[in-house]
Deep mutational scan, measured.
Amino acid sequence: MDVFMKGLSKAKEGVVAAAEKTKQGVAEAAGKTKEGVLYVGSKTKEGVVHGVATVAEKTKEQVTNVGGAVVTGVTAVAQKTVEGAGSIAAATGFVKKDQLGKNEEGAPQEGILEDMPVDPDNEAYEMPSEEGYQDYEPEA
């Protein structure tokens, strides 16, 4: 019985440690998101679009440190934060509304985080759909 109880105690310690790591990862992701939003706020009209992409990228980098179902929630929060940063930029006159959601080359930025393969159960990952990809044929 002692062996059984000791095993359960060790398992509990492992769960607590994993929860603490997840909590730490979420806190880091939130900190990076805040950094990115402050970065966007300090940019001029020309830099705002690039700044919004930076927020998304920093958040995406930190999301990889967070495991399990938390990833889905962090990704949703990050996307809403990026959308909010863009709205703030438009409201303050840093950028025109028609410039939001495009990178410096004018290509749409939507789907940055949505296409990231995420499995809350950590069982399997699927690649994003290939609808947006084109076949590449090298020139002879």
Results as ranks from 00 to 15, higher is better:
G93P: 05
V48H: 00
V55E: 00
V71G: 02
V15N: 00
E20W: 07
E126Q: 03
V95I: 14
V37I: 05
V66N: 02
Y39W: 10
A29H: 02
A91S: 04
E114P: 11
T75S: 09
G25D: 03
A90L: 14
E131P: 09
V55N: 00
V48I: 12
G47K: 07
G132M: 13
E123W: 12
K12A: 10
E139M: 06
V118Q: 02
A69T: 07
S42N: 15
N122F: 10
G31V: 03
G73S: 14
V66L: 11
A11V: 15
P108M: 10
M127G: 03
F94D: 03
E139K: 10
D98S: 14
T44R: 01
V71F: 09
D121G: 11
V66Q: 01
K21V: 10
E28M: 09
H50D: 05
A124P: 07
K34Q: 02
V77A: 08
T81V: 15
V63N: 01
L113M: 07
G36M: 14
Q99I: 12
G73F: 06
P138H: 05
G68W: 15
K10S: 05
L38V: 08
L38W: 06
K80N: 03
E83H: 07
M1Q: 00
T75Q: 13
E20N: 11
L8H: 00
V15S: 00
A76I: 14
G41I: 06
E28P: 01
M5H: 00
T44V: 09
Q99V: 13
V40Q: 00
E123Y: 11
A140G: 13
V63K: 01
H50L: 13
A124W: 12
V66R: 04
A124S: 08
G67S: 08
A11R: 00
E105Q: 11
M5F: 01
E13K: 06
K43G: 01
F94S: 05
F4C: 01
K10N: 03
G86W: 15
S9E: 14
N65G: 11
K32D: 00
V16M: 15
A53Y: 15
Q62Y: 11
P128A: 09
K34L: 06
G84S: 11
A85E: 02
E57A: 08
T64A: 09
V70Y: 03
A11N: 00
A29G: 02
M127C: 07
K23T: 04
D121I: 09
A124R: 08
V3S: 04
A107F: 06
M1I: 00
T64R: 09
D2W: 02
G14I: 15
K58T: 07
V77S: 02
G41E: 01
A78Y: 14
A78H: 04
G84Y: 15
A30S: 03
V71E: 02
G7V: 13
N122T: 10
K23M: 15
A19V: 11
G111K: 09
T92G: 08
D119F: 03
D119V: 05
L100W: 02
K102V: 14
A19P: 00
V71D: 01
A69H: 10
Y136Q: 08
E123Q: 11
G86C: 14
K23H: 04
A69Q: 09
L38N: 04
D135N: 13
T75W: 15
Y136A: 05
L113C: 03
A56V: 13
E61V: 07
V77G: 03
K32Y: 09
E114H: 07
M5S: 02
E61C: 06
A56S: 13
K58Y: 13
V55C: 07
T44Y: 15
K10T: 05
F94M: 02
V70R: 01
A17C: 06
T64L: 09
L8P: 00
L100D: 07
P128N: 08
A124Y: 14
E83F: 03
T75R: 06
K10R: 13
T59K: 01
A140C: 12
G47P: 01
K102C: 05
Y39I: 09
E137D: 09
K6N: 08
Y136T: 06
L113N: 02
G86I: 14
